[in-house]
Design a binder for these strands. Sequence first.
DNA 1: GTTCACCTTCCTAACGGTCGTTAGTTAACA
DNA 2: TGTTAACTAACGACCGTTAGGAAGGTGAAC
Lengths: 192, 192
Amino acid sequence: MKATLLLHTALRHFAQHGYEGASLQEIAQDVGIKKPSIYAHYRGKDELFLSAMTYALDTQKIHLATYFISTRHLSLEQSLKGFFDWFLEESTQNDQLKFILRIAYFPPVKLEREVTDLINPFFDSLHRHLTRLLRERDRTEQLLFSDDYASAALAYLTVTEGTMTEFVYNGVEAYQRRFTAVWPIFWRGLVR
Amino acid sequence: MKATLLLHTALRHFAQHGYEGASLQEIAQDVGIKKPSIYAHYRGKDELFLSAMTYALDTQKIHLATYFISTRHLSLEQSLKGFFDWFLEESTQNDQLKFILRIAYFPPVKLEREVTDLINPFFDSLHRHLTRLLRERDRTEQLLFSDDYASAALAYLTVTEGTMTEFVYNGVEAYQRRFTAVWPIFWRGLVR
DNA sequence: GTTCACCTTCCTAACGGTCGTTAGTTAACA
DNA sequence: TGTTAACTAACGACCGTTAGGAAGGTGAAC
């Protein structure tokens, strides 16, 4: 019980302050235990950080897959557009995606290798999911301009990340302003 | 002489390790002075950080303006495309843009206010520059799909940031892969 | 059914190290 | 002569971490 609370609290702190900026003292205080008690659960700060990371990646991987399955009956445009709303909802509930985006861009230097080895498969899998989605939908809907689905997926990822990082820092309004600005252009460029 | 070297070194360290992760000890060592000598130039870490920040913002503001002026004779597409190459060249020379992107997304919590107050005008100015560029070029070339130039500029900014953050973390190859994926789609969506 | 050993999870106390910072001094220079 | 920029020494605070012990629960042996 305290163990999962500890993991969630640590994740929130790491997302907010980064690896170096997060303090075990403050994490423990938030959980309601003393600092050394953390060591009953984890070998140290590094292991706590990497545990929070694998946890975030695993659960978000599942959530992402669930989303794309749940939109099977929707049109391609609705699926791709809805992903932005889904991200927003997901991010207001917890800090997992913020945490992932933060350490993906700016990992702690001393854990760079471990972070990369965990993050890259995550984005690769996301990229594959999107590529497959585009290919399968295009087979039935036949509306994409190009059949280079991998590139289209990468472009889509670029746009989403550009928009989502905006949310992480500047909040909902700036996020939605960006989305309404970029989506019509992107979609027009995507279809024939 | 040592003063500007100190500023540049600090900027590099802040860009690489973030505010909390950067150490005055290591910065001083890189410069070739002792840690307390920093206090002959700055009141403390905060002032050093904010000085590096204003310096980076000011010089990049000028560089950006210079770029867009220097491409006046080029077509709109060449101007907008060339901006990516310019960014790449600029970023390999120094860490100023990396520094700006990092603190824009993940500022040190205790300096959040000061960072926001400096960063926002920077991006606003960039946005205004782009909006004006689009409007002026469209008057002569008349090829944009919509005359909502502010939205087009914001969309362009989103795409560039999504691509550039990719460079900051994953290097040149990933950056160029993204650019070649996203640019044709974006441009097709932008023009009529 | 009681006892005893064991493990988990928390605690207090304290460790060495690094952090940013200050005081006081010295050498060079205008 | 005063100012600037460097130095050495040392400060208190906080960092992550370790040692050692107390409380509680679990399960096997008697």
